Computed example of a mutant assay.
Amino acid sequence: MSAYDRATTKLAARTEYEALRTRRPELFVNPPGAAFEILLDRADQQRASDEMSRVAVAAGLPESTGDIGVVYRDAYFSLVRDAVRFANGRLGTYIRIVPASASGGAAVLPLLADGRVVLLHHFRHADRDWHWEFPRGFGDPGEDGPGTAARELQEELGVHVVDFTYLGAVSPDTGLRVGVDHLYLARIGTTQLTERPAQGARAEGIDAYLAVPQAEFRAMVADRRISDAYTLSAYALAMAQGLLEAAKG
């Protein structure tokens, strides 16, 4: 990359950063006692960036590893690298993921009228593996939690539900990702569920549905056949709130 292109890239990252600060000022607050202070002064930012670039190059990494700002953005999230002052006074950078939707995504525990729980067999690109999990997805900008939940049920399970019970919020990864996603329980009729996923769901990596009695679902959790964090969180919240059957014996 030429010096001109490098400078242009750095400027674009910082310009996007300032735009994000304007749209989402709550993401740049330094509360009393914060262990990592976000540096907003340009001179401090530059010192932090220079230090991290020096460390990166010494470790065989690209100089751009120290760049400050929105270093990547798409329709779903931004990858943000902040300049920070650590608790020991050292300057450096800290990276975080900021979803495009400020309201967060949603996951839904589908509960059939006969008490069975519905799971999706979903291939996930990130770890290149199949998972049994509940419907879930990113929120669209301007969409609220119930709206996201309803859309994900329609897209992934092929059912239309407007009756949701709110279970609570979950922070998927407080060490990396900003914000929370919202968890719901949806009661659906047994006749609404199709035998096989529709073409749209299959295109998203869903190849099967599984409706299991709650005792079998608990066994799947206990046997570690379910590892999806959203599914386990929704299950824990629903159990704690008395919305699912208690284990017998």
Rank of each mutant, 00 (worst) to 15 (best):
A106R: 01
P32Q: 13
R14E: 13
V212F: 03
A102C: 00
A35G: 06
S49T: 08
E16H: 14
L157T: 04
M239K: 12
A75L: 09
Q199F: 00
A48N: 02
A83L: 05
E143A: 13
G142A: 08
S227I: 12
A13H: 15
A219D: 11
H125S: 12
D127M: 08
G137T: 06
V70D: 00
D127N: 14
L210N: 03
G189I: 02
A35M: 03
L176R: 13
V71K: 07
Y209F: 15
V159C: 04
G89K: 11
A198T: 10
S2L: 09
Y76W: 11
S49Y: 02
I97L: 11
V161T: 11
D223G: 09
L11C: 04
V80C: 03
V29W: 03
V29G: 03
V80M: 01
R225A: 13
E216D: 15
T22I: 00
R73H: 08
E16C: 11
Y94N: 12
A100Q: 15
D67Y: 08
K248M: 10
R151L: 08
Y17V: 04
A13M: 14
V29D: 08
G145F: 01
V71S: 01
D163P: 04
V108K: 05
V221M: 13
A234G: 00
V212A: 12
P31G: 00
A34R: 00
A229F: 14
P213M: 08
D74M: 02
D44M: 00
L40E: 01
T8R: 15
F164I: 12
I188A: 07
I95E: 15
A13I: 05
G145Q: 07
L153D: 05
L111M: 11
Q46L: 11
R218D: 02
P135K: 10
D44W: 02
A208W: 05
P141T: 14
A203N: 11
A211F: 05
F28Q: 04
R177Y: 09
R187E: 13
A59E: 15
A211G: 08
A3W: 09
D181S: 15
T190D: 14
R136Q: 14
D129Q: 10
T194P: 05
L167A: 00
V212T: 12
D5Q: 14
L111N: 04
E63S: 15
R90M: 06
A113G: 06
P25K: 10
R218E: 01
D144S: 12
V118A: 10
P110L: 03
R81M: 05
E18K: 09
L91C: 05
D163F: 10
L109F: 00
T190H: 06
I68M: 04
G147Q: 10
G158Y: 09
H131M: 03
D144C: 09
A75V: 10
V71F: 07
R90G: 01
S103H: 12
A150N: 00
A13T: 04
E133C: 14
Y72I: 01
N30R: 01
L91E: 02
G92E: 05
R136D: 09
G158F: 09
L27M: 03
Q214T: 14
R151M: 10
D127F: 11
R124S: 14
Q46S: 06
A34S: 09
Y166S: 10
P172F: 12
A75D: 14
G145E: 06
A150T: 08
L11E: 15
L183C: 03
D163R: 15
